[in-house]
Design a protein around this nucleic acid. Structure first.
Lengths: 143, 143
DNA sequence: TCCTCCTGTAATATTAATTGTTACATGAAA
DNA sequence: TTTCATGTAACAATTAATATTACAGGAGGA
């Protein structure tokens, strides 16, 4: 399995807003062209970002704009906004361990703390990285 | 998305071996009963564990046995053995960013280092937990 | 030897999630 | 009032995970 590409697409969208805002209207069609993904998918992801308060869309012809300082948004904010992982958590636990077996009866209590802890470390790492910490866009001066 | 239940099932299998080895033959049918998952699924996971050198299966009537000290096996060993995550890594990167767009051209170089670092932290955490670190099986003395 | 238990694996089905596509009603600006 | 874009529904396509049935073949016990 892999974490849904909604996550990297959402970062791509935010970076486009950062780069183009005020210059070009950042519409879903425009984003679709930069990202290489269907415009409807883009709109669905934007509606997640909107619900999370990361961006705004003013109907009309202006496209998406930021609704808080983009640089301070963390990868965790984006990850949560687009529901990159199921609400049940990072690990999928098998559903029917047998309570009549001494191992089956205890497997949850044996593993749950550790799995939660792993997930916590993973999420803390996502929280520690803000958009401003990503490498900046390099310009090829020969162009 | 979620990390495949193959991972928690594999841990369950190893805990069963730890608990029952030498007392009851740990067969795929027996494991299927404890885990609540079809025996063929169990056999497939066992064949992964075998390939990774964590367990042995001697044909005949003895079921699965350990092939190295179970307590020293880390969650990372199990995670890698069962291919809980695609070989491309934890994050699914969208496939066709547009090289003609300054953002599309740079999105990989902007994100890849950070994603690798997050994955590294996640895997280090898995490596830090051995089977012996899991909570032990509790026995209800009223039984 | 023959029977039985078990493994390994193929083939196929089912389910769920992701991603893609078409279509269209509606809002806002020119 | 035309034009451009959004929001969303409906549905298709794809992929991964999981379940199920079936069976050939190894190994031990009778």
């Amino acid at each position: 399995m892999q974490i849904s590409s909604r996550f990297t697409i959402a970062v791509h969208i935010l970076e486009c807003i950062k780069y183009f805002e005020g210059k070009i209207p950042v519409t879903s069609d425009f984003l679709s062209g930069s990202i290489g993904v269907n415009a409807v998918i883009i709109r669905r992801i934007i509606s997640h970002l909107k619900a999370a308060g990361l961006v705004k869309v003013e109907r009309g012809r202006n496209g998406v704009i930021s609704s808080r300082p983009l640089d301070e948004i963390t990868l965790y904010d984006v990850y949560v906004a687009v529901e990159a992982v199921s609400s049940e958590g990072l690990f999928h636990f098998h559903g029917n361990p047998n309570p009549k077996c001494p191992v089956g009866k205890n497997i949850h209590s044996m593993l749950d703390d550790s799995l939660r802890e792993i997930q916590r470390v993973f999420e803390e790492k996502l929280k520690s990285i803000k958009l401003k910490d990503l490498k900046s866009i390099t310009v090829d001066i020969t162009e």
